[in-house]
């Protein structure tokens, strides 16, 4: 769809630092190779927590060990996810 955009502006939420804020670009469950869930299951769960294209996200907090998990504001709720799974959320 927006192939014209330079790809460097999008990256996985799993790599975002605390304070990052942006918009969900797409869900690509194949990026989250470390997750135990199948790609379709992971995608469903992320959508169920509100991670759909266009949703505004902001990384509010990081865990103590390895900055993991992260607490993400998704529109108007706060969700805790591990970075491994957040890799599937491509933000930009």
């Amino acid at each position: 769809m927006t192939d014209a955009l330079p790809t460097v502006t999008t990256f996985p939420l799993g790599q975002a630092k605390r304070g990052y804020s942006g918009v969900v670009h797409r869900i690509d469950a194949d990026t989250a190779t470390g997750s135990a869930l199948s790609a379709s299951e992971l995608e469903s769960r992320l959508i169920e927590l509100g991670f759909v294209e266009g949703a505004r996200v902001q990384v509010l907090h990081e865990g103590a060990v390895g900055r993991d998990p992260i607490a993400v504001r998704v529109e108007n709720i706060t969700v805790a996810v591990r970075r491994r799974e957040a890799m599937a959320v491509i933000v930009g």
Partner: peptide
């Protein structure tokens, strides 16, 4: 064993 995801609303 594969670690299950941790996804939780706060």
């Amino acid at each position: 064993y594969q670690p299950a995801p941790f996804m939780l609303e706060l």
